[in-house]
Design a protein around this nucleic acid. Structure first.
Ligand SMILES: NC(=O)c1ccc[n+]([C@@H]2O[C@H](COP(=O)([O-])OP(=O)(O)OC[C@H]3O[C@@H](n4cnc5c(N)ncnc54)[C@H](O)[C@@H]3O)[C@@H](O)[C@H]2O)c1
Ligand SMILES: NC(=O)c1ccc[n+]([C@@H]2O[C@H](COP(=O)([O-])OP(=O)(O)OC[C@H]3O[C@@H](n4cnc5c(N)ncnc54)[C@H](O)[C@@H]3O)[C@@H](O)[C@H]2O)c1
Lengths: 268, 268
DNA sequence: ATGCCTTTGTGAACGCGTGCACAAAGATTG
DNA sequence: CAATCTTTGTGCACGCGTTCACAAAGGCAT
């Protein structure tokens, strides 16, 4: 999710739980690696370890696809690769457009892993007239004016948005109007889309903030442990405070913080 | 998802559910936007709409932080920004290193949104001697030889990995040995890390595969609807088949596909 | 053919997350 | 001060996802 997500509850697609779908690519990757090493079969235990999940979970996941294992032996690697690929729709070729060819968009365009799995970059699109015609990753960047034409001519149903946040909503609307029904959004905004359109988001900033939360928690616990008599291990404490407290109206009305307010840095 | 994730079940950090933590940055972003427009207060309903979530969920999320709202009025925007920032640990300054300054790493280094929220890029690190000393995003790229020194001197506890997949595990081990306890991994690999280290992953390929799954499902349903008498809407059907069936040993043993095998493109 | 050993597939229990619905709280108005 | 209206905070129920644990299944050796 990427991390982050914008799950639509979705109608339990064909009986395969969403959580399982999200893990299938993980299994596929592990299986592909085994396949390249010409490993013929693999047990749920081994494969689960390679994919970083619980083996019971993996078996249950596979059980949604059918009974593809052999008791006492395990799973046939090649066969499973095919079954998962088919289930994920990777036996088809999916043309993709990338909109917004800046720092990130260009990096995505240059990314090899795209085409590795049936995804083909059909076009690179940018609103900047100066970008139009420029070669990026061996393709010529096209102008947003032609967005609709490109989508329709190439039968594109998956769009990647790498524009600034302010443009993302509008870009998504044009993509959708032209026929796109799945969007991968790198811009830090909530996209509002009609029913039937899937949006997944990748948000670096959110991921970092989640890490910071846990990091702060670890630091707090460590401090507590140290205060309780432990030796202070070298745990890289962050530097200085940044945001001063707001101290506004509602502040007085406040009832009671979680647990007596950790001694957060509070200058003023 | 980004989506994608590597949740450690974690010990219900300080009573705040993981799912709530993952949404706090979303609320914070919406609140910051309101703050910039000088909106003084906001109701759970409005804020929930801006963040793209259910209002009941939002209220429950906030209830884990304390009672910061005023019944009949809503939430004080500035105050809530501060409370969430504090809870997420964003009132501190978090130095971050990026390892692997290729296409993606360079894009990340150039990304402004990094510093926007208390994250400061302390160093850019690459193994390529030719990269060492080169300026990227106004910083000089440093060689991996100095990785440990950089981490320790800057008190870095968060590392971003943007190396090729093959190098990621090793890089993570060096980061962790040097004191890093949180990793954001862009390489398509499962990182194996010791207890106490948080890993979150951002995986473009996985997100696309999940979209492809739903896309295929939509196409199938649409085809079924059309067969049932509907007019075929212009739904951008993908092009050609790519992976031929494996047809291996276990194939015969197979018991029974989900529901009589949709007529997937099956050449041979 | 028989028995043993390995590994799958799944029933069942449990816990987390979500969303409804409403009582309590406070603001606001008369 | 009392009545009314708005919006929060949360008890509760439900469904999804995870995990355990084990019977059934199949391979393999004897
Ligand atoms: N660079 C990163 O590492 C990174 C990381 C996370 C998120 N993001 C997000 O990804 C997005 C892109 O980041 P970036 O660093 O590449 O920014 P950028 O400014 O380098 O590139 C944005 C590109 O989008 C184009 N653009 C603007 N409006 C457009 C429109 N309406 N239609 C089509 N193209 C348009 C611009 O011409 C520009 O080329 C931003 O929303 C950013 O927040 C970037
Ligand atoms: N480019 C993208 O859009 C994109 C998208 C998703 C995922 N990824 C993943 O991100 C990673 C980086 O992608 P990229 O396109 O930037 O690749 P890249 O080849 O352009 O860059 C990789 C960089 O890592 C450096 N490196 C290699 N081994 C290293 C080591 N041991 N220590 C430090 N640095 C090392 C290389 O010198 C190079 O500069 C890859 O794993 C890729 O799969 C990239």
């Amino acid at each position: 999710m990427a991390t982050g997500r914008t799950h639509r509850p979705a109608t339990r697609s064909r009986g395969i739980p969403e959580a399982t779908v999200a893990r299938l690519p993980l299994y596929l990757r592990a299986l592909t690696a085994l396949s390249e090493r010409s490993v013929p079969t693999v047990s749920s235990e081994e494969l689960a370890a390679a994919a970083g999940v619980n083996s019971a979970k993996l078996r249950k996941d596979f059980s949604y696809l059918g009974s593809y294992g052999t008791r006492g032996v395990g799973y046939d690697v090649e066969y499973l690769v095919y079954q998962i690929s088919r289930e994920l729709g990777l036996t088809q070729d999916w043309p993709v457009v990338i909109v917004g060819i800046g720092n990130l968009g260009a990096a995505l365009a240059n990314y090899g892993g795209f085409s590795a799995r049936g995804f083909r970059v059909a076009a690179l699109i940018d609103a900047d007239p100066a970008m139009a015609g420029k070669p990026v990753a061996g393709m010529s960047v096209q102008h947003t004016d032609d967005l609709e034409k490109i989508i329709e001519e190439n039968g594109v149903s998956i769009g990647v948005i790498a524009t600034p946040a302010g443009a993302a909503q509008q870009v998504s609307e044009r993509l959708i109007a032209a026929g796109v029904t799945s969007i991968l959004n790198f811009a830090p905004t909530v996209l509002s889309v009609p029913e039937g359109v899937d949006v997944r988001k990748v948000d670096l900033s959110i991921e970092l903030q989640i890490l910071a939360f846990h990091e702060q928690r670890k630091a707090g616990e460590e401090a507590a442990a140290a205060a309780a008599g432990g030796s202070s291990v070298g745990g890289a404490a962050p530097a200085a405070a940044v945001v001063p407290p707001a101290g506004r109206s509602a502040a007085e009305t406040r009832k009671g913080g979680p647990e007596g307010d950790v001694p957060a840095v509070m200058p003023a």
